[in-house]
Simulated assay, not measured.
Amino acid sequence: MYDVILQVPIIDMPWEDFILLAITALAGGAFGAALGALPAFIFTGFVVFLGEGLAILERSVGGALGAVNPTDVATGVTGVIGFGAITGPHIAFAGGVAASAYAGKKYPEMEPDGWDYHFGKNILYAFGTKPDILAVGAIFGLLGMLITQLGNALVVVSGTAATDFIAFSVFATAFIARAVFGYPIVGRPSGSSLLDMSPFEREEPRAQADGGEVPTEHKGRLATEPWLPHQYKWSGVTVIGLVGGILGGYIYIQTGSIFLGYAISAISLLFLNLGVEKIPVTHHITLIGAVGAVVFLPEAGAVAALLAAGVFGAVSGLLGELTQRLFYSHSGTHVDPPAMAIAIAMFVVVVLSLVGVIPNAGYL
């Protein structure tokens, strides 16, 4: 399954193929800015769902497809499109996130009514055809592709996986966007620490804008802005982590697909984008839950693997909450907690597999 994420590393890629990929990544990043980061990621879910469905079908019919080798079509849909230059999160979503960060500084008047946070965090907003915003998305789509490809090249050179470089690229480009467009990398907490969400609960306003004077359009902002107002309490995050992890693990046990649960979670965000309240964000939970099943199924059996999936999902959910408190809540742009959770979780999985604590490194 690692080849689905790795695709063809840059060191083994002909220059013509690299130029093809770079041009497409520019278009993919602009596509993410045009649609908005979250709508673009929802498309990721649909495409990966299709690819994984094809993979399950191909495994079922085997050689009956004649000249088509089993998994070739599915790998193309999941890897080349879903996690590739068209809807790959490191390209389309990253382009949309950077576009929002840029617009938050350049076009605060575009902010829609009812948006309570800094406009730079609005990843639901579709920027349509505004050329400069699409150009920002294109540049960051290309940057996301390059970071991912360079990370994967290091894997090939070293012979050892390090983490999920798509996830790493998603939050790396978001931090770069903060630096480029003049936002604090972390931001100053209004409570007792970076982890303190009580200013949000008390609805305390921001005393000053990010890093300077208070522009009129920034007055009245909340002092602390949690990533998900309905999903930030430790107890609730733990519970949804257990639930989502078990579901992701069960999907893997029954279908052999690591990414199908991730795709379903991503598709569920369509309802969040449409304004349905309290839809949980779970793609980092179902993915890492599936990894827990991958790790434990061969040696421990289905029941133990399912329980391990729940634990892995809960840990990933808590990592997402920890990183949102550290890196999302106190600055003015979106830095993706699920991407950070996936990258950290997969790094730990790789390390544990290298030292022999667990038998494999999941999809890496």
Rank of each mutant, 00 (worst) to 15 (best):
I5T: 13
Q7H: 04
I10A: 09
I11W: 08
P14S: 08
F18E: 13
L20K: 10
G28H: 04
G32P: 02
A34H: 07
L35K: 15
T44S: 11
T44G: 08
V48D: 04
A55R: 15
A55S: 15
I56K: 10
L57D: 09
L57N: 09
V61T: 14
V61I: 15
A64Y: 10
L65I: 08
A67T: 15
V68T: 15
N69Q: 14
N69Y: 11
P70Y: 05
T75M: 12
A92K: 00
A99I: 02
M110I: 05
M110V: 00
D113I: 15
G114W: 02
W115G: 00
D116K: 10
H118V: 11
I123Q: 04
A126P: 15
F127Y: 14
D132L: 02
V136W: 00
G141L: 04
N152H: 10
V156C: 03
V157L: 10
I166P: 10
A167Y: 12
S169M: 02
S169T: 05
F171K: 14
F171Y: 15
T173S: 07
Y183W: 14
G187M: 04
G187F: 05
S193T: 05
L194Q: 12
S198P: 01
G211F: 03
P215A: 06
G220A: 01
G220C: 02
G220R: 01
E225K: 08
P229M: 04
H230V: 10
G241I: 07
I246P: 01
G256C: 02
S265N: 03
A266T: 09
L272E: 01
G275C: 05
E277V: 06
T282W: 03
A290V: 06
A304K: 11
L307F: 06
A309K: 00
A314Q: 13
G320I: 02
E321C: 12
Q324Y: 14
F327G: 09
Y328S: 14
H334D: 06
D336A: 03
V351F: 11
V355M: 07
A361E: 06
